[in-house]
Nucleic acid binder design. Structure first.
Lengths: 164, 164
DNA sequence: CTGGGGCTTCCAACGATGGGAAGGTCAAGG
DNA sequence: CCTTGACCTTCCCATCGTTGGAAGCCCCAG
């Protein structure tokens, strides 16, 4: 079957299927005479596995390991469990980080009148001189932002040149 | 003062300071005779503001808006509060997503013996035929993973075998 | 035979950050 | 005065997962 069909029934987009192939997560697909990639049920099965793993927050690299565990009939269930628990622990760390942000923000917001006067503890909390806003892990890349579509916006905020 | 010093006392790396300038988040820095960027206390103050906002999970784009709110003496505290509450809501969505993953994974893990036998409900949960693993937002980019280094990656040299 | 939809590859972008190269500047020490 | 080394400059590249688009080939229905 063609990539489009495989994509539809696996829930992985054609783009991503090619990407996974390119990065070696999945083996190179068979080709039809036309040069089109050719997928069978086993391929689709694997793709669905991948999509579910992504939905559970595993990185592509981790999914590579999961695929190895999946096809390794000799491995112990303890191995898989350890892997999963590791991941759970990481997810909980992320949650804790976000929760800390939420707590800080809610504290600030609770102190903000939210009326038409300009004084605002939220902004003051960000601007304040002291070494405020407790940061959990000082310098760690953050990435979990973003939810809706992106579209518009071509490198934002351009004209906010305030001498302040 | 030089960028390195401004970086040290603001907590924003020189790389990021230049990046923020380049994208227009902050105005172009003054230059010394040498061509070095020159920062004063107000600049550092703004950088600290930015770092705190980042620590609270705001995107750079949002920080642009926050900077605008900061320097706008006529805006109502309600505006800031609304902005913050919006952000809090998004953070909570993220938390809920991750929590759902954790719940699913923990359910699977709880059913896994974790012994030396190969049968494993975790892997089976990923591989299972049915339309399992409830996904919250079907096709939404996810990004908060990341743990260790990358490297590895096989990828057998591109011998594009085309019969064509 | 033509049209349109699917497929191919390649290239770029997103966001935030770090790494590194090639070269200019500056202050301290010989 | 000159060297050394720390700092600065600009550029380009990589990350991670995903999407978008362009240019061109393939296939089927009309």
């Amino acid at each position: 079957m063609n990539i489009g069909r495989a994509a539809k029934i696996s829930g992985v987009s054609p783009k991503m299927i090619r990407y996974y192939e390119q990065t070696g997560l999945i083996p190179k697909a068979a080709r039809q005479d036309s040069g089109y990639r050719d997928y069978d049920d086993a391929d689709v099965h694997r793709l669905r596995f991948i999509r579910r793993a992504r939905d559970l927050g595993f990185t592509v690299e981790q999914i590579g390991e999961l695929l190895g565990l999946w096809s390794d009939r000799s491995r112990a269930s303890a191995d898989v469990k350890a892997f999963a628990l590791e991941h759970i622990a990481r997810l909980k760390e992320k949650m804790a980080e976000i929760e800390a942000m939420v707590r800080t923000l809610e504290t600030l917001a609770n102190h903000c009148h939210g009326d038409d006067r300009p004084d605002c503890p939220i902004i003051e909390g960000l601007a304040e001189e002291g070494g405020a806003t407790p940061r959990l892990q000082p310098r760690e890349p953050r990435r979990f932002g973003r939810s809706g579509g992106q579209s518009a916006r071509r490198h934002a905020a351009g004209s906010s040149n305030r001498t302040h």
